[in-house]
Design a protein around this nucleic acid. Structure first.
Lengths: 215, 215
DNA sequence: GTCTATAGAATGATAGAC
DNA sequence: GTCTATCATTCTATAGAC
């Protein structure tokens, strides 16, 4: 076997290993979201991934480590969507883009949002440092941006932080409380059209609540 | 011992028993809120209540039954606050009263809100029937009320259901995500003044977003 | 009613064969 | 790398003394 062939085989194995880890992470996100950290079991994660639990321990040394990796992914995805906030220097466009991005995330990755919510409700034992550093930094810089809009008379004066909380809460609700929303929708998940209407209602009320008539 | 004395003693014992159950329920709400259903243990509940776990089982036959009772209490308290919605036939007054009541509940009973959130995130296994009956009924009647305001030109047209979700989400956030809010507040819980400002921001944005200038 | 002790089941983690 | 078998721990729940 040539060196090149060896390299290719090695690359293939690495690739397979990566895919195995990806699969486990995806399944683990779902299980942690629906059962909480304590409720989730390695056996259940293994079962849904089609593996004995010993294999999960082979890839991720402990349940806590696996959970930490799931949380890392959730935060990475959130950060990426949150950057939509910076695309425009106009409150109407920026807030519309941000609310839309958050709603699309709630739609496409509800389990990530649930894991995050579960973790916060528990008192954030695993991610306190994220909150104290990355999240706080993100907030401070965006609050400055919102304040500059207020100072320039582009929107009504509100405490920027409470505005951010309002947007987080009302968008993430469609992921975290998806079960309740489905039950109240006669047991059917919101259609794409209904979800769009919900999104537009949020944008409509918040922008109307913040912007002056003239804008 | 006279019959009256016997009656009094019996009443005192019943009273003590009731107080014992109350204490356990209060402690259980806190433990379920912070650890989730699976994370909460009878040992921990007993420890915080100053009792061995066998006593908890004496008062509540099983962990599931105790949890169900905690959930019952949460829903009862919520229903009472939700009635604030009916005190006025004017959107400004009614929505202000309702948002205020929800925020006061988030402030005074954050653990109840967290238990509810945990239960919904898990897929509402224990309270699906509540959602399908009591909560749905409550929604339908209040949506009709909101719709009548819209029909009478008292507020801008929005889908009443998504407005309710917005109010629930943005108020309950202050309970469910209290840990995150505290960390972002430099590790200190929101002061009464800050909480009031948050409440007024919500009322301000939502009412401004819904009502016509002339109102 | 209250407690100690323990049964019986489930879980995270690992050893060791293949 | 993958699997079976198993250990050590922890949990719900109950038995039984007081």
């Amino acid at each position: 076997m040539s060196v090149i062939a060896k390299k290719q085989e090695s690359s293939t194995n690495a690739e397979r290993r990566r895919r195995g880890k990806e699969l486990i992470l995806r399944v683990a996100e779902e299980v942690f979201a629906n059962l909480g950290f304590q409720g989730a079991t390695m056996t259940e994660i293994g079962k849904r991934a089609g593996l004995p639990k010993a294999n999960i321990h082979y890839y991720f040394s402990s349940k806590a480590k696996l959970y930490q990796r799931v949380i890392d992914n959730v935060f990475t995805v959130w950060l990426k969507a949150a950057d939509k906030f910076d695309d425009h220097d106009d409150p109407r466009q920026a807030l519309t883009a941000y609310i839309s991005a958050k709603m699309e995330l709630a739609r496409s990755r509800p389990n990530g949002s649930k894991v995050w919510a579960n973790e916060i409700i528990r008192g954030a034992p695993m991610i306190r440092d994220y909150l104290e550093t990355h999240l706080l930094d993100w907030c401070i810089s965006r609050e400055a941006r919102i304040q500059s809009w207020i100072d320039r008379g582009m929107m009504r004066p509100v405490n920027p932080r409470y505005l951010l909380y309002m947007i987080w809460a009302s968008t993430q609700h469609y992921a975290d409380f998806g079960t309740q929303i489905t039950v109240l929708n006669n047991g059917e998940a919101l259609s794409d059209e209904a979800f769009d209407e919900a999104k537009n209602t949020l944008i409509d009320v918040i922008l109307n609540g913040l912007l002056y008539e003239s804008n």
